[in-house]
Write a protein that binds this DNA or RNA. Structure first.
Length: 744
DNA sequence: TAACAACGCTTTTTT
DNA sequence: AGCGTTGTTA
């Protein structure tokens, strides 16, 4: 192939900066790419260019993306641009999937077998709980979630248990460290790794085995990293270790879109990049090809409230388009109704449903919209909701397979040993735990021994025996049968399918349906091993984009995506910015929430609707007023430049709450005036209930309770009343459960 | 001792 | 509304 102009057709659609970013191939390159500036296009074209101009083979390119989805899309685009086969760029993927691949090859170097299992968050938590129970540590004082969080953080910083220094006074941290140590030992024993280990083990291999490191360094002639602002310390180290001496490393990032600091991501990596690699070339992509001017300006006005920005000037050639709508609703149901009205009455005529998305801060917020859409029959899909592979029936099925494949997978054993019910309850399980600890054997081996002894009740013994016999049999079958047939046999012979059929509930039907889906997705893998080794990193079964459906997802999940129409509901103080994040990290967190809001706004191409409700319901509906909370519009709404907005107060009651006069000096006390008013209004509501109740009930009043019967008030504490019941004595009861009756 | 019912506490974001 | 813990039943 010669280097004619025709061969470089792929450059024709690029602007000057983009072209430069593609053609500057040698030496370190930092691309600061604003939202919608075509960075994916640049990356794919760059990969194409490297291959087409014969600078290297596709197999010599390391290209790291943030999600599997992004990797798949990029692979497809490169494929069609280079007209090559599917595996032309084998080292294209996420840090985790590439690490997985490396680790399967070099597992022995870190004391694992190549068949290791990747644990998901639920498995992790379960293991931590088991360790806590075995060591008699109070779960209330040491929440497993917190420990998991700490372990994850340590791993993101590249710290092994031996490398962590603690002060003796920090009780909970010391506890967590002890658990961390045991946790790692247990993982090794079960031949398992967690997400963090994938990266961490690779780093130790690169560090301790120079031949392996050098072979990768030699092979990877060019490295590309997407979403560099969201890489963390250990990932950065991982990269540094295998970057070759020619330093052909190109990173793409946007400091304004850094939204994963809670996962250890450091924007600092962008700033340090120029320090780490001397003679770094920096290219800024500032022209936006996605959004209308009104949308883009709205986004810019918001993000200008953040400090410490690298400073890009995003601009657009596009029309101003329609102004951004700010809609106010009285409650969440109104918000969902209003949203579906806009879609049905207006958008549906001009846009495909696939091009309409509702982006929320927290996953549970999609529910109100789902209910509405079901009610009126608008088709929708929830992206990244409950992960397919985390559904209980899918996990059950996978654990059967995991256990058949690896008898030492104690977590899998524990999960399925009594599912379906086999009369193997807590007591038996405890025995298995204890015995396996004492004898240093896994649960499967321990069960075999217990079956020999007289420790178990006959009924339990019999069903455990049957299970073990089945497992051994399935293991044998796994060598002859295809993996799909094996699953069918297992579900059948274990009684799992029957259990679901017997339930006769809609949920059980859905579960059976999901198992069918699992079966068909297994067909995409050649055998059981390939399947088990890859599903853990797979989040969902690929979405079907063929049907016309409205998309519901979290803002985090929308990263990297774009849609014609975007709805951003729930912009209320406490929800967005989220209260938890403010409590934990104060202003730093508010800035990250603001970046999240910026990401959300910049997903929109043509139409954008931001909304909030004045009253919000929490925790499902118990049909009383206790779960209602009045809410203030988010401070972010006040920060948007009104020039680009249409403000629409739909709900009558929201006027007094909705003001655009909040000043922005909340950096001092980390709370905006809006927040202050919000908390005050909450207190006020509580106070009103409280005084009303006091006027209703007086000392000595005779009352009636549904379950406790009749009694007399003998003490009043707020709305909690101490009652002396005739039949059951003194009890503390909330006033609203009481009825006044005539005094006797 | 296991299965089932009731209660109460919780909800950020994810590879 | 959904889960895990506690209390009650068979």
């Amino acid at each position: 192939m010669n280097m004619s102009v025709v061969d470089q057709d792929y450059l024709n659609t690029l602007n000057n900066q983009q072209k430069e970013a593609v053609l500057y191939t040698e030496g370190p390159l930092l691309i600061l790419a604003g939202a919608g500036s075509g960075k994916t296009k640049v990356l794919t074209t760059r990969v194409t260019h490297l291959i087409q101009s014969k600078k290297c083979f596709g197999s010599q390119i390391l290209c790291v993306t943030f999600t599997n989805k992004a990797a798949n899309e990029m692979r497809e685009r490169v494929q069609s641009l280079t007209q090559s086969n599917a595996n032309s760029v084998p080292w294209l993927g996420t840090f985790h999937s590439i690490s997985n691949k490396i680790l399967r090859k070099h597992a022995e170097a870190v004391g694992l077998k190549p068949s290791f299992t990747i644990l998901d968050t639920l498995d992790q938590l379960k293991l931590i709980k088991n360790i806590l129970a075995a060591e008699n540590i109070d779960v209330k004082k040491n929440p497993p979630k917190l420990i998991a969080y700490l372990i994850d953080h340590w791993k993101n910083k590249g710290l092994l248990p031996s490398e962590i220094k603690t002060s003796a006074s920090d009780y909970s941290k010391n506890n967590a460290l002890r658990i961390y140590k045991t946790y790692q030992e247990r993982l090794k024993l079960m031949n398992c790794v967690d997400f963090g280990d994938l990266i961490l083990h690779c780093v130790s291999i690169f560090r301790n085995f120079s031949e392996i490191r050098e072979s990768f360094k030699r092979n990877f002639k060019y490295i590309l990293v997407d979403e560099f602002q969201d890489t963390n310390f250990i990932q950065n180290l991982w990269l540094n270790l295998i970057t070759s001496d020619t330093k052909n490393i190109c990173v793409v990032g946007d400091d304004d879109q850094s939204i994963y600091s809670w996962r250890g991501a450091e924007v600092k990596n962008i700033l340090d990049f120029e320090k780490n690699y001397s003679n770094t070339k920096t290219i800024k992509l500032e022209q936006n090809y996605r959004s209308t001017k009104n949308i883009l300006n709205t986004a810019s006005s918001l993000i200008s409230n953040n400090d410490d920005r690298l400073g890009k000037k995003i601009w657009s050639d596009f029309d101003p388009g329609e102004k951004v709508w700010i809609n106010s609703y009285s409650d969440g149901r109104d918000e969902a109704t209003g949203t579906s009205d806009i879609i049905e009455k207006e958008l549906i005529k001009k846009f495909s449903l696939n091009n309409i998305s509702i982006l929320v801060r927290a996953a549970f917020q999609t529910r109100e919209f789902e209910e509405r859409f079901i009610r009126i029959g608008l088709p929708y899909r929830v992206i990244g909701g409950v992960k397919f592979y985390e559904r209980s029936e899918i996990k059950d099925a996978l654990c059967y397979l995991r256990l058949i494949y690896q008898k030492n997978d104690d977590l899998a054993f524990e999960r399925i040993v009594n599912t379906p019910k086999r009369s193997i309850g807590d007591t038996t399980l405890k025995k298995i735990h204890e015995f396996s600890r004492i004898n240093n054997k896994n649960f499967f081996e321990t069960s075999l021994e217990l079956l020999d002894g007289n420790e178990l009740k006959p009924k339990t013994k019999q069903s455990l025996k049957l299970l073990i016999k089945n497992l051994i049999n399935w293991s044998k079958l796994s060598e002859q049968l295809g993996h799909v047939e094996l699953l069918e046999r297992v579900l059948d012979e274990s009684g799992y399918t029957q259990m679901l059929i017997n339930e006769k509930s809609p949920e059980a039907d859905a579960r059976l349906e999901n198992l069918k889906e699992l079966r068909s997705s297994m067909k995409n893998y050649p055998n059981l091993i390939e399947f088990l080794e890859n599903i853990s990193l797979q989040t969902a079964i690929d979405e079907e984009w063929d049907d016309e459906k409205i998309n519901l997802m979290t803002i985090h999940a929308a990263k990297g995506l774009e849609f014609d129409c975007i709805f951003l509901p729930g912009w209320e103080e406490g929800m967005f910015p989220h209260q938890k994040s403010i409590e934990e990290k104060g202003d730093v967190a508010v800035q990250e929430e603001r970046r999240l809001a910026y990401v959300a706004i910049t997903r929109a191409k043509k139409r954008l609707f931001i909304s909030f409700a004045s009253n919000r319901k929490f925790f499902g509906n118990k049909n009383d007023n206790n779960d209602w909370m009045p809410s203030m519009p988010s401070r972010f709404i006040d920060e948007l430049d009104k020039k680009y907005l249409n403000i629409n107060e739909i709900a009558e009651n929201s006027h007094q709450d909705f003001e655009f006069s909040q000043d922005n000096n909340f950096t001092e006390n980390k709370r905006s005036p809006g927040w202050e008013r919000y908390t005050k209004s909450r207190e006020k509501i509580k106070t009103i209930n409280y005084t009303n109740n006091l006027t209703d009930f007086k000392m000595g009043q005779s009352v009636q309770h549904e379950t406790f019967g009749n009694g007399k008030i003998i003490h009043i504490d707020g709305n909690k009343l101490l009652i002396n019941f005739k039949s059951s004595g003194e009890k503390k009861v909330i006033d609203k459960y009481l009825k006044k009756i005539a005094n006797e």
